[in-house]
Simulated assay, not measured.
Amino acid sequence: MFKLIISINFVILFLMVFMSVAFFTLLERKVLGYIQLRKGPNKFLLKGIFQPMGDGLKLFFKEVNYPSNMNFSIFLVSPMLGLLISIFFWLIYPYFGLNFIVTFGLIFMFCCSSLMVYIFLMISWSSNSNYSVLGMIRFISQMISYEVSMMIIILNLMFMINSFNMNDFYLYQMNIKFFFFFFFLFMKLKKNFWAKKNPPPFDFSEEKTKLVSGFNIEFSSMSFIFIFMSEYMSIMFMGMLLFEMFFGLMMNKFYLNFFILIFMFLVIWLRGFLPRFRYDKLMYLIWKMILPLFMIMFMFNFSMKLFNLYH
């Protein structure tokens, strides 16, 4: 009976995440409309509230174009695998309170995040397009670079709670929040999530003036929907992970969802007013500035852990 309840809860969670992706697009278009002093989607029925449904139907019924020299099986399967892995991210969501515990949840998240590199490699290589391959090289190098620093930052936090379990972030923050002690880590991890998940102004793999549409240039209709949903689901998951680790909001879902909404708004807001800067500057920032700093912090925390172990 307990397993059935858990299964039903996760099915409801996944359905709500899918619906959130649809309305995330509506929020994005509305906010960008206000930032750019123009009208957002406001024509479809009640103030554009059914606009996500119209966008979904439009993409669903669009023509599917297949490149002549593509690898057909990988071309069809890779977007579905990307969406499936994005769904797996949400398995560590502390949805059922302390009654459902994923002991190695953060390790599972690291594994899924690493698999996304191979998914986007398959997506771009299977279409056999020069633009997609160039976008893939940019995206994978950017994703791997910021994933290294992301893992080191999270390892620093795991030294504090001495666990890989997401639920323990709540237990260790019942009285005081990590946000007030590790504000610098919070800001750097937030920037790492933004750069890793490739939203503007960090969308170097989809730079319209150089790469047209980047690694997904040859995908349309349902295949494009799968890629699109996997990216937006990952952005929402990173918002949940960020505020769960620094605020411990597991037992109060209203506040956790409210902070996820704030994270989504900040992603859209940065897209509206920040210009895209050079790709080599992004790589310089991570490899020569951020990564050495957090490696020093990691070695310090590791040495303190050994000191406590032996004494």
Rank of each mutant, 00 (worst) to 15 (best):
F186Y: 14
R38L: 13
S303R: 00
L285M: 15
M250T: 11
I154R: 00
L189A: 04
V64E: 10
P41I: 08
S303C: 01
V64S: 05
I235V: 10
M143Y: 15
L155D: 00
I227H: 05
M122H: 14
L270T: 10
L309Q: 07
V133C: 12
S124Y: 10
F193R: 07
I144E: 09
M109Y: 03
M53D: 06
S129I: 09
M160K: 08
L37S: 14
R276K: 14
L185G: 08
N167M: 10
G40Y: 12
F72T: 05
V102Y: 15
F186E: 04
N42A: 08
C112R: 03
I87Y: 14
F224D: 07
F18A: 06
L106Q: 05
M70I: 06
K177G: 03
M233G: 02
N71K: 13
V102D: 12
K188A: 12
S145N: 02
K253V: 12
Q173E: 08
G248I: 05
F110E: 02
L37W: 13
I85Q: 00
M1A: 12
S163M: 07
N9R: 12
F104K: 01
F61V: 04
F246C: 06
M245D: 11
S223D: 11
Q142D: 09
R138E: 06
F14D: 05
S163Q: 10
I123N: 14
F204M: 13
D168W: 00
S129P: 04
C112S: 06
L15R: 08
K281D: 14
P79A: 02
F294Q: 11
Y66H: 07
G105L: 08
L46Q: 14
E218F: 07
S149A: 14
M136D: 11
L27V: 09
F2A: 04
P67F: 12
V102E: 15
I107F: 10
I235S: 03
F181K: 04
G248H: 08
N252P: 03
N252Y: 13
W287N: 10
F277P: 00
Y310F: 13
Y118G: 09
F226H: 04
V148K: 04
F219L: 15
M122L: 15
I107Q: 06
Y172G: 01
E207Y: 13
I8T: 14
A22L: 14
Y34R: 09
Q51Y: 15
M289C: 05
W287P: 02
L157M: 12
F159L: 04
M116I: 11
F193E: 07
H311I: 04
L57C: 03
L293W: 04
E206D: 03
N165I: 00
K210G: 00
G105E: 05
I290D: 10
F24Y: 15
L293P: 00
P200H: 11
K281S: 13
N162S: 08
S68I: 05
E147N: 03
I296V: 14
F258S: 05
K58I: 03
L81S: 01
L27P: 04
L261H: 09
W90Q: 01
M236Y: 08
N167C: 04
F183P: 08
F184S: 12
N71L: 11
M251V: 09
I260G: 00
V117G: 07
A195D: 12
L293C: 01
